[in-house]
Amino acid sequence: MRNLIAFIRKYSFFFLFLAVEVLAFYLLFSKNHFQRSSFLNSTNEVTGGFYTKYSNFNDYVHLAEVNEALSEENKRLRGRQIQSFERLFGENVYVLDTIFRRKYLYTKAKVVNNSISHQNNHLTLNVGIKNGIERGMGVIGPNGVVGVIKNVSDHYASVVSVLHREAKISVKLKTSQYFGSMQWNGVNYRNTQLIDIPNHVELLKGDTVVTSGYSSIFPEGLSTAVIQSFEVREGENFYDIEMKLLSDFKQLSYVYIVKNNTSTELQELEENREGQND
């Protein structure tokens, strides 16, 4: 016993190191729990406030690019307006009836903090619970998917970016409708990877990849990336596809948060189905 105490005393510094390191790793691995409490992350009011001030300052510098992106988006949306379509056949009447209902609602938000250089990147937005933002909502930018809301505080929300090694987004090929997952390999922030596309599918460089709409987080058909190169490794059944992201994450300043009005209904249905299979 005395030897044991002597041993611990002799190496007390090392044991202290181990204890603190264990605490740090405990925080690291249980971070979802801790972050849900929204204290030790950038959605808290102190750092969130700093980030807002900082990004207000930064905005002036990037006004030109933001205007550019917004007018580009306006152009695209204008092209989709009913006024820009011509009636093809004589007497068709456009009837607004109850066939349509609103499925997605959008909230605009400003990016107050953004990172692209880590393996797991996050963004912070200047909207929170008070703006009706909830965990799990999708975030899109002028040029496609940006990420998914992870934590929300009263006035801020943090987003798991597409540039996060564990973020998987369900996407499909615009032309052939084959679906796969978009997942980042952590190398280049302009590129991302498409997995789970079987090797019999015909691909072309420059094919557009759009959101599949299966996850019910993002609306279907949102252009997100284009195929840059692809190959099949020997003995594999799936392509390795390199895609170029349409949005430049370094320039993101305004984004939209997508609320799906039917998501709870859909989730309940899918959970029920899983229950019955057992």
């Binding site: 790793f25 690291l28 808290n44």
Partner: peptide, 14 residues
């Protein structure tokens, strides 16, 4: 707290 990586920089600094 700034980078949303609770524990990562802490463990490295320790």
């Amino acid at each position: 707290v700034f980078t949303d990586t609770v524990g990562m920089h802490a463990s490295a600094s320790v």
